[in-house]
Simulated scan of single mutants.
Amino acid sequence: MQILHIDSAITGDASVTRQLTAKIVARLNADGDATVIYRDLNQGVPAIDTAWFEAIRVGVEEPTPAHQDRVATSDTLLGEVQAADVLVIGLPVYNFSLPGQLKNWLDQIARAGVSFRYTAAGPEGLLTGKRAFIAYAAAGTPMGSDMDHASGYLRHMLGFVGITDVTFVAADGLAFDRDAAMARAQASLDQIAA
């Protein structure tokens, strides 16, 4: 099994999502047989831009170094997802939504003809047969509430590229009762089987 472990929190070792993703990966890799690829999106994920659009979507005849750089970055990020059997993604909620670097990563991997395609019946995800575990943490945004613009969006985007087996481990309400939030998250962790 190959696990892609993705963190995106800006709070370093104090991050609840980083703690939860590490626990999820450890649980999934209890026998030590998995290959784990780690990517910290807080180290930087470029936003898509005109050079990305020209290189990836249009396909310029004579690519510049900027075009080549955009393709290489996107290919690397998408290749990690394609090779993974399981994705473990940290989803800290900032201002009711996901971090910009996680949005940038999603934009990099959502590529027509590679990770999804349009059909007469609508879009079809091409990254099927994978599981995803999402570590959701929020100080005051309850998961699934009207204020939560993070979990539904991430679930939708993963489904859009074909990853529909998605499990959330949520530690929400941390600002109100941290112990209770962590206990709920641990109960969800205890349900995860490798």
Rank of each mutant, 00 (worst) to 15 (best):
L20C: 06
L91W: 02
R39S: 11
D190H: 09
V45P: 05
D146T: 12
D69F: 03
F160S: 11
T64K: 05
I109H: 02
V88N: 04
V58E: 13
A34F: 02
I10R: 12
F160A: 11
A170N: 06
N95H: 10
K130Q: 11
R39Q: 13
R155W: 01
R70M: 13
G159N: 12
R184T: 14
R70P: 00
A180L: 13
A135L: 12
N42I: 02
F96I: 13
D177Q: 11
A181Y: 00
I3L: 12
P92F: 03
A83D: 12
L98A: 13
Q19G: 11
A137E: 03
Q191V: 07
R131M: 10
D107V: 10
L91P: 00
A183E: 15
F116G: 01
L174K: 07
Q191H: 08
S145E: 11
M157D: 05
V58S: 02
P123L: 04
P142R: 15
T73W: 06
F176I: 12
H156N: 13
M157N: 10
G159D: 10
P92N: 10
P65G: 05
V169H: 00
T64D: 07
T167S: 15
I48T: 14
L78Q: 06
R18L: 06
L28W: 03
Q43T: 08
P65N: 07
G113N: 08
L91N: 00
L127F: 04
T164P: 02
S151T: 14
V161E: 03
D7E: 11
G32F: 06
I134E: 00
I134Q: 03
A181I: 01
S74E: 01
F176Q: 14
Y94F: 15
P92K: 01
V45Y: 08
V86N: 06
D172G: 09
G113F: 04
H5E: 12
G44K: 07
R70H: 00
L174Y: 07
S188P: 00
D75A: 10
V45S: 06
P99I: 03
G144P: 04
G152T: 10
I109C: 05
R39F: 05
S15Y: 01
S188A: 15
A180H: 08
N104P: 03
A137T: 06
